[in-house]
């Protein structure tokens, strides 16, 4: 029996939610496919100096570059690591190419493979399968890619194990007062991340009395979410459709910061370690980088 107190999501500060749910050594998935990336949660994990994390994400971008550069990660499970439209993730590359700040173990898949792994995790199955990887070198360097034969047709298919992060963290646009969560627009693997994870934190733009129907609206019932943190613009410099626009200027200016280790350290110190929370982080930035936070 699940105690009744756990049936509903709890509204918490992001600081408390991260302190309670993210522990050193955990496997943590901060998901979001360009849209709704939980930047504020990544920053809070850095502020709380979490270490030895296995980070999971299809598209690690700047927030994972920061977590890796700040020494929070032991391992990365991913499918595409880059700064879309702007350049490389130099902290990620430095970790892989030169073990800076320390060696980073990597386990890499394709997007279809990662999506299948989340789906299997959400479905409570031990593995998922896909028609993929055949002929590629990924199959030879990634031990979590194996092969199964279809018992009905004999077709050879790739098998990948379910992902079960200790903590799944996503952003959504809204929660209602009962702690149900709604997101819309590009929702990536966010539903699967919450359902596959042991614990979950959802950052929302605001709390509303009632949800309205939306394009590709996805609702997560309160009882599959652990903590909800109300963090306006919590996905910045990513975006929340109908609340903000993607701050492409921030992505562009990250390239030189990420490239220079000293500049990176100074930037993280000024904007993340020295700020108390996400609102203070946003205030610390040059206003020209903020773009349109009102969408």
């Amino acid at each position: 029996m699940v105690p009744e107190a756990q049936l509903m999501a709890r509204f918490s500060s992001l600081r408390d939610a991260v302190a309670e749910h993210v522990h050193d050594g955990d496997t943590v998935a901060l998901e979001g496919f360009t849209h709704l990336i939980p930047f504020a949660a990544g920053h809070e994990i850095i502020r709380q100096r979490r270490q030895d994390l296995t980070l999971v994400r299809m598209t690690p971008d700047i927030i994972y570059d920061q977590l890796i550069g700040m020494g929070c990660a032991r391992k990365l499970i991913f499918s595409w690591a880059g700064n879309p439209g702007a350049g490389s993730l130099h902290r990620f590359r430095d970790a892989v190419e030169h073990s800076v700040p320390h060696p980073l173990e990597i386990e890499e898949h394709s997007h279809a493979g990662m999506a299948t792994r989340y789906q299997a995790g959400a479905s409570g199955l031990p593995f998922g399968m896909l028609r993929g990887y055949a002929g590629t070198d990924l199959a030879s360097i990634t031990p979590t890619i194996r092969w199964v034969t279809c018992p009905f047709t004999g077709e050879n298919l790739a098998a990948v194990p379910a992902l079960h992060p200790d903590v799944g963290v996503i952003c959504a646009q809204q929660a209602d007062r009962d702690g149900n969560v709604m997101m819309w627009g590009i929702t990536g693997v966010q539903k699967e991340t919450v359902l596959a994870s042991t614990r979950s934190i959802v950052l929302v733009e605001e709390v509303v009395d009632e949800f309205s129907p939306r394009t590709n609206g996805v609702v997560l019932p309160s009882w599959v979410v652990d903590d909800i943190a109300v963090v306006p613009s919590g996905s910045y410099p990513s975006y929340a459709l109908d609340y903000s626009l993607r701050a492409s200027a921030f992505y562009a200016q990250w390239e030189p910061i990420s490239k220079d280790l000293a500049q990176f350290g100074a930037w993280m110190d000024e904007h993340v370690l020295s700020t108390a929370d996400h609102a203070a982080f946003l205030e610390s930035l040059d206003p020209s980088l903020l773009g349109d936070l009102d969408g």
Binding site: T59, S79, W80, A81, S88, S110, H111, L130, Y133
Partner: peptide, 8 residues
């Protein structure tokens, strides 16, 4: 960056 969607 890695594979992304390209292999499939």
């Amino acid at each position: 960056p890695g594979a992304g969607g390209a292999p499939e």
